[in-house]
Design a binder for these strands. Structure first.
Lengths: 191, 191
DNA sequence: GTCTATACGTGGATAGAC
DNA sequence: GTCTATCCACGTATAGAC
């Protein structure tokens, strides 16, 4: 089994159980590999596994979010591509964000070096799009922060209420509200 | 030592370390009580302790948030009282929300019976205020959800970036943006 | 590269004295 | 109501055979 495949199996476990809740036994069971085999691939143990997953997600973000945001098309089209990717990776709001999971609790310090730049690069890239759309640098940056904040908040609420409607609503309106456009599904919210 | 005092000491521990990261040893050290003494107060152990903290927070919310929202004054004044309380309990965004902490990871199921109504009652109460302010029931409800979602999102982001500016910004503008009012510190965001 | 077996610490929890 | 002492399960991690 290749390391890449293992990392792919690790993601849902860490997302579901959190860092401390993810035990080697669970990982062993999910992957079918013995604990010793896991240490063969990740000599530094669980922490290294989580870091590998974060690195894997970084590549995913680069390909499926950052590149789309910096790609061809109007600002609206680029933002729509972003929300589409977000819907996918968070399974319509039913899955938590690993960045958030790992930034809470005891594990925080171990991963902040990966978590912080992850959010920062997302915000910065959205800022670029909004500057393209005509907003001032400062205004664009605050709006970009708002975007991330609303996504994360909707994920929190969807999880807490066991109901993903808030995530769906935020995803639907976000590209339009960021650009101050009224669209059909959210006429009353961006005024 | 009274149970009330113990619960007060438990809150910061669960908030900081999460449920799995909060060990009896840590609690014992923080409270100065031996493990056996803790079991005298909470026979069902750690889970009962966390539930007691959630119950304690419920009372706090009732007194410091719900009552203010349903109290005297204009809608704006009531919302300002709410954000003031939020600033306090989250220490200007430097502290996490226990509801969010406990709704993540392995512990989720044990506490959803307390977490879900907590968010629901907050949303419902804000909805009442916004209906008072003239919004339709449906519109008010979505805005109330947005309020909670933005608060939670700003806490997530403040924690992840180790920088509470997003929390401060959301708290400053929220009472105004909910009511579609332009205020001095956030002219450009409620368009 | 994967396994079995095992070591070691620590977590949650309890018994029983005071 | 708090303590000391202790139990058991399970967590991370390693040794060594295949």
């Amino acid at each position: 089994m290749t390391k890449h495949e293992i990392v792919n199996q690790l993601l849902p476990i860490f997302r579901r159980y959190g860092y401390e809740g993810t035990t080697l036994s669970r990982i062993s069971e999910a992957t079918g590999l013995g604990k010793a085999s896991l240490y063969h691939h990740f000599p530094k143990g669980k922490e290294e596994m989580a870091k590998a997953v974060l690195e894997h997600l970084k590549e995913w973000r680069q390909i499926h979010v950052i590149n789309h945001l910096l790609g061809e098309g109007s600002p609206l089209e680029r933002l729509l591509a972003m929300t589409e990717s977000m819907r996918l990776v968070y399974d319509q709001g039913k899955q938590s964000c690993l960045l958030t999971i790992l930034s809470m609790g005891d594990s925080k310090e171990s991963f902040s070096a990966q978590i912080q730049p992850a959010f920062e690069s997302l915000i910065e890239t959205i800022t670029v799009v909004l500057v393209d759309a005509g907003f001032s640098k400062q205004d664009a940056n605050e709006r970009a922060e708002d975007a991330i904040l609303q996504i994360q908040g909707s994920l929190v609420l969807s999880r807490a209420l066991d109901n993903n409607s808030s995530f769906q609503r935020v995803m639907s309106r976000l590209p339009y509200s960021l650009l101050n456009i009224n669209n059909q599904t959210s006429q009353t919210k961006e005024q």
